[in-house]
Structures are given as structure tokens and as C-alpha cells.
Write a protein that binds this DNA or RNA. Structure first.
Length: 452
RNA sequence: GACCCCUUCGUCUAGUGGUUAGGACACCGGCCUUUCACGCCGGCGACACGGGUUCGAGUCCCGUAGGGGUCGCCA
């Protein structure tokens, strides 16, 4: 029997990082086993249920690369879907629920009470076979001792979560329910419902929760808790997937940075942990950097654009060469615009603290000589420049810094940046010489006004 | 109040009776180096506590404490 799993979010207006991880585990399991990943929208709460809220979920999953085999085509419940187990919006499934409730009533397994319909729940403990937690014997709580039966249809006619969840899983042929551990206790209800409906329950796998760094429950306002925060900062989605996969699951060796294909290959239920995990923003950012620096240039360029880098009228080759010198240096894409600005404009101020030192009078003669050497260099590549600069430093008996810092300041205006030789090679001889001359002029000025 | 799950460095984790308790993030040194970063080397740092079982326990059992979850005409 082929594996069928599902992710069944309710449109609340944001996709929680815990929900994203649940979706991911389901998706990974489907892809690993060659099964089907079903997306079902639990939009029974009409209040906060909007096309926008549904879109947040769809866009979040698409961004992560979690494609669904069956589910909504888009955020409009009336607009079709893919798969033949639909509709995939609970708001469209009222008749299905009503039909099953009738059957339960006919069988005497449900009954009316004060306008609502109650399910006749068993009075004994339930053994929940769980792929992560093992067999869990769930005793009745004190309240359940008093009243084990629970409402499945409210007096206003709306079916409740437990009922619709079970009916949908049954109707959609779900074989494995992989969900947060917060549902473990409820599973006794679900098992009873499956049996009452004449079906054997699917396999359950309750995965640990994701908590804040202080161990408290993660809510949407907490740092990193909402997926769109990571989307908005132009994180690499594969990095989020990779980081999330390591929260509550382990490949059991020292692997950390893995492409999605490897995750699919290695993911399985037995390696899922039982203990809750805390979300660590710093490790997430590290993971993002690891993926960022390995991105193919076209995607890196795309991300740069989204992050607000202004390329001006620069040529394609120039843009890519420039970005290539930044890619393994910049940890967050949001830092890139400032980092690479000097490549795309000639108009920039010098960092005065740096300029004061770099353009000091004692550096002037050497710097002027460097300019002449660069002007006459046969090839304007990184290696020839490095060789020439170092030779000059030796000849003048000055530290390499004494030449490098003025050159860096002249070319970029700032202390931090790509490798100097690489950056000059990308800039090209004309631009470099112009910038060197601008710096030289400034050194003249300060000599006249300064120590005179 | 009842019920359920969990407990190894600050964090994520490896570890299924015998290990100098391993790795990763973070942090601190050093090397490399034109800056920053990468990389490499090194350091700091953990089996919640108490009882058992056993020749031997992070690993098995019981208890305690702590954390999380659930008990709704919310999902």
C-alpha cells in the first residue's frame, strides 16, 4: 500500500515555523517512500478565514519547495484542485460530514444532546500505537471519567475538529498521520472515531514540538517563529528546510549541511526524536550562510536583486564577476547592498576613520608609485597586481598594509570588502586608476591644508 | 485537579550495558591573511536528582524534581 500523508493547516494568517516543520516531515516522508503528499485546508473557522490567509500557507509551502500531489490549485475554494479525493477545503465538505454523522447516529454511536451531537466514547483507556513514542496507554482524565462523550457537531450545526479531521483522513485514504505532539492526547478520540466509522486508524507519528530559545511555547510573535519573517529577509529556502529537518530528526551521523535530495534520501520515521527542540536563530543563520555561499550564480544574483542591490547599467558579466567576489564573504543577503555598492557607483564617500589613516602623508609617495605601476601593468588580473604590489612594498621597505589600505579605501571607501586584488580586477583598470587619482588628489589637499 | 510526553555541553544532537561521552551552532585562543569572511588547529562546556538491577549504567527499572502538551459546542 502506497504511503499517503497530509498537511492540514488552518488559515490563521501566518505559517508557524512548527507548522512548516510538520509539513516538511510529511513531505519528506512522502518523497522518501514515493507516496503522496496531500494538502488540506481546515477552513471551518469562517471568521479569520480569508483568501489572503490561505495564500500565506500556499506561498509558504511553495517557497519552501514543498509541492503537494493533491490539494488546492490556488487560494479559491471554488476554483478546482488537483487530486481525486477532494474537495480539499473543509468548508466544501459539509455533506460528507453530515452523511457520516447520520451513520453514527443510526448505529447508536452518536446521539443528540441539547442541540449538539455527542459521540459515544469508550470508557476505558486507549492504547495509542505511535511510531515515535511507542505504545502510549492513554487513561481517562478526571473530567472524562465524569463525561467521556464529546461533542462532534455543535448546536449551530457545525462539525468540530476531531470529527472532520478523522473523516477527512479516512476519506482521503491517509495512511500515516504525522503531526505535532500536542495532538497525542487527542488521538484516543480519533482512534475511537475511526473505529466507529468502521475503519482501522492510520499509523500515527507524533513529532516533538518546537519551543523558543528559553523553552517556552513558541507563539507567532517570537523571534523566528513565523515563516514569513524568513521569507522577507530573503533567506535561502533550502536552508530553512535543512535547519528545520534537524529539529527533532537526526541523520544519526555528523551531517549538518545537506541538499534537499539528501534529506529525502535519508529521512525516515524511526530517527525522529521524542524530546521537544528549541529554535536557535543563530544556527538557522549559520545554516542560511552555508547554503547562500553555495548558491548557483543566477540564483544568487536574483536574491541580490530582491535584497535591493542596484546594478545600474552594469553589464551581465560585470555583475556576476562582482557578486562572485562577495558570495563567500557576506553572511546575510541583507548585508550585500552595502557590501557591494562600490562596484556599481563611482560616487561614494570615504569612511573618514579609515581615510585618515590610509591617506596619511607618509603613504603618499608609495601610493603614487603604485598608481603608475598599475597604469603600466601588462595584465590587470589579480595575480599580477598582487605580485606588483608586494614587490613595490619590498622595494620601498614598507608594510604591505601601507599600500593596500590606501588602495582599498580609494576603490571602495570602506574597510571591509572583497579581496582587494579580486575587486580591482573586476573594477577594471580605468575605474581603478580614476579612483586612485581621486584619492591622490585628496592626499594633496590634506598635505596643503594639514601639516603646513 | 486529572491524564500524556520528555530530560546528554548555553542550543541542536550522536550514543541502544564496558567510549578519554563524539559532532554542529555560539563563545574563547592560535595559524593563514590586505580587510572581513572561509579554512585549519586548539580550548571552554553535558549524562536533572535519588534509589535500585548488574562485575559494570548516559544506556534497564522505580521514585522525585523540572519542562512541554492535553482534558472546549477552538483548530
Amino acid at each position: 500500500m502506497s504511503v499517503r500523508v497530509r498537511f492540514a493547516p488552518s488559515p490563521t494568517g501566518h505559517l508557524h515555523i512548527g507548522g512548516a516543520r510538520t509539513a516538511l516531515f510529511n513531505w519528506l516522508y512522502a518523497r522518501h517512500t514515493g507516496g503522496q503528499f496531500v494538502l488540506r485546508i481546515e477552513d471551518t473557522d469562517e471568521e479569520r478565514n480569508t483568501p489572503e490567509a490561505i495564500n500565506v500557507i500556499l506561498e509558504g509551502l511553495r517557497w519552501l519547495g514543498l509541492d503537494w500531489d493533491e490539494g488546492p490549485a490556488n487560494n479559491d475554494p471554488a476554483d478546482g484542485s488537483k487530486g481525486d479525493h477532494g474537495p480539499y477545503f473543509q468548508s466544501q465538505r459539509g455533506e460528507i460530514y453530515a452523511r457520516h454523522v447520520e451513520v453514527l447516529k443510526e448505529k447508536g454511536l452518536a446521539y443528540e444532546h441539547e442541540g449538539a451531537v455527542r459521540f459515544r466514547m469508550q470508557r476505558e483507556a486507549t492504547t495509542i500505537p505511535d511510531l515515535v513514542c511507542g505504545d502510549v496507554v492513554r487513561e481517562l482524565t478526571d473530567r472524562e471519567q465524569e463525561q467521556p462523550d464529546f461533542v462532534i457537531v455543535r448546536s449551530d450545526g457545525k462539525p468540530v475538529f476531531h470529527l472532520v479531521n478523522v473523516i477527512d483522513d479516512l476519506e482521503m485514504g491517509i495512511t500515516h498521520v504525522i503531526r505535532g505532539e500536542d495532538h497525542l492526547s487527542n488521538t484516543s478520540k480519533h482512534i475511537a472515531l475511526f473505529r466507529a466509522l468502521g475503519a482501522e486508524p492510520p499509523a500515527f507519528a507524533h513529532i516533538p514540538l518546537i519551543l523558543n530559545s528559553d523553552g517556552s511555547k513558541m507563539s507567532k510573535r517570537d523571534d523566528g517563529a513565523s515563516l514569513d519573517g524568513w521569507q522577507q529577509t530573503h533567506c535561502v529556502p533550502e536552508a530553512v528546510v535543512n535547519y528545520l529537518s534537524l529539529l527533532g530528526w537526526s541523520p544519526k551521523d555528523d551531517s549538518q549541511v545537506m541538499p534537499v535530495a539528501e534529506l529525502i534520501e535519508r529521512f525516515d520515521l524511526p530517527q525522529i526524536n521524542r524530546a521537544n527542540a528549541r529554535f536557535d536563530v543563530e544556527k538557522m543563520q549559520w545554516m542560511n550562510y552555508e547554503h547562500l555561499r553555495n548558491l548557483p550564480m543566477p540564483r544568487y544574483r536574483q536574491l541580490a536583486l530582491k535584497a535591493g542591490v542596484e546594478f545600474g547599467d552594469a553589464a551581465e558579466d560585470y555583475i556576476e564577476a562582482a557578486l562572485a567576489t562577495c558570495q563567500n564573504k557576506v553572511k546575510q543577503i541583507s548585508d550585500l547592498p552595502d557590501y557591494c555598492r562600490f562596484y556599481f557607483t563611482d560616487i561614494f564617500e570615504y569612511d573618514e576613520a579609515m581615510a585618515a589613516k590610509a591617506f596619511a602623508p607618509e603613504n603618499k609617495d608609495g601610493f603614487a608609485k603604485l598608481r603608475e605601476i598599475f597604469a603600466n601593468l601588462e595584465s590587470f588580473g589579480p595575480e599580477p597586481m598582487e605580485t606588483a604590489l608586494k614587490a613595490l612594498a619590498e622595494q620601498l621597505d614598507v608594510k604591505i598594509r601601507a599600500l593596500v589600505m590606501p588602495a582599498r579605501c580609494a576603490c571602495t571607501g570602506v574597510k571591509i570588502g572583497p579581496s582587494l586584488y579580486d575587486l580591482m580586477a573586476v573594477l577594471g583598470r580605468d575605474r581603478v586608476l580614476a579612483r586612485l587619482d581621486r584619492a591622490l588628489a585628496r592626499m594633496d589637499e590634506s598635505n596643503e591644508t594639514g601639516e603646513a
